[in-house]
């Protein structure tokens, strides 16, 4: 690694923003996977993408605009699940196809922002500006605080929703908090790894952690750790080997998942 790489402010910014995103994805991912809501990040990423396209088309700040649209989208998914009696994945499919259709439509009538929008399709972590670093740090603080302040309630609700409901804790509020935190995380993920890979970032480290964790604390710890390793390692790999960062990040996450899976299989055979 050359000296200019370490001191490059671009690279440092990428690591800092990536690290914050990793923490948020790692923590949220455990809950999303265990709630069978893994595809919520897929749906939200498409809504967020439409938000970016709308922001670009209207010459508004695309990231901020996308946050607003995604928050609205996340609440809409919940409402559809609760009230339209749709299975969760169908509600998500409605929203994700609608979001993508809107983005494609906007791109066709205003052709001048196509290249900029592409950056959100594949992500561009080395192009992150200082304001986005602040957004990432703020996001990591909000998501970590949101989860740790409500940790017991989130665990109770995820493990045994019916008993949690009878215990009088407000499940609707907690559901909303969780999808809203996911929505904001997804927008930042869109900037860093792009639409095509952001679902992977919220799901794969958590899935790897679930292979190994024996209790919930371990699951949160391992998921955050794997997420950090994937993003930071992916950024360094991309820089050194001149690869697209988003692909390197997801490959690394998958590699960790496969290691976790093999480790579990091996351990399982030993104890049999």
């Amino acid at each position: 690694m050359s000296g200019d790489l370490i001191f490059s402010s671009l690279f440092l910014r990428a690591l800092l923003a990536g690290g914050c995103l990793a923490l948020a994805c790692g923590l949220l991912g455990v809950f999303l996977v265990l709630r069978r809501d893994a595809m919520i990040s897929h749906g939200l990423s498409h809504v967020a993408f439409a938000g970016v396209a709308l922001g670009l088309a209207l010459n508004l700040m695309p990231v901020v605009f996308s946050v607003v649209i995604s928050l609205a989208g996340s609440l809409l998914i919940l409402r559809l699940k609760e009230q339209a009696r749709l299975p969760g994945d169908t509600a998500i499919a409605l929203l994700s196809s609608g979001g993508l259709a809107l983005a494609v439509f906007l791109m066709s009538i205003k052709k001048d922002f196509g290249a900029e929008l592409m950056a959100y399709l594949f992500g561009d972590i080395l192009a992150i500006g200082p304001s986005e670093v602040y957004l990432a740090v703020g996001l990591a603080v909000v998501v970590s605080a949101g989860i740790f302040l409500n940790l017991s309630r989130f665990i109770f609700m995820t493990f045994d929703r019916e008993a949690a409901s009878v215990s009088g804790i407000g499940l609707k509020g907690l559901d909303r908090l969780l999808v809203m935190m996911s929505a904001v995380t997804i927008v930042l993920g869109l900037r860093i790894v792009g639409l095509l890979l952001v679902t992977g970032l919220t799901v794969i480290p958590a899935a790897a952690a679930l292979q190994l964790a024996r209790n919930f604390r371990q699951a949160l710890l391992l998921s955050s750790l794997f997420s950090l390793l994937s993003i930071l390692g992916g950024i360094v790999l991309a820089y050194v080997l001149n690869l697209p960062a988003s692909a390197a990040i997801i490959f690394l996450a998958l590699f960790i998942f496969i290691l976790g899976f093999l480790f579990k299989r091996l351990k399982g055979q030993q104890t049999m």
Binding site: S152, R153, R214, F216
Partner: peptide, 20 residues
């Protein structure tokens, strides 16, 4: 419950005890 759910016996009880 989900057999992949990683939770210890103490955590099951603590989650409810701290929530209610």
């Amino acid at each position: 419950f989900d057999q992949i759910f990683p939770i210890s016996v103490a955590e099951v009880i603590a989650a409810s005890l701290n929530s209610i």
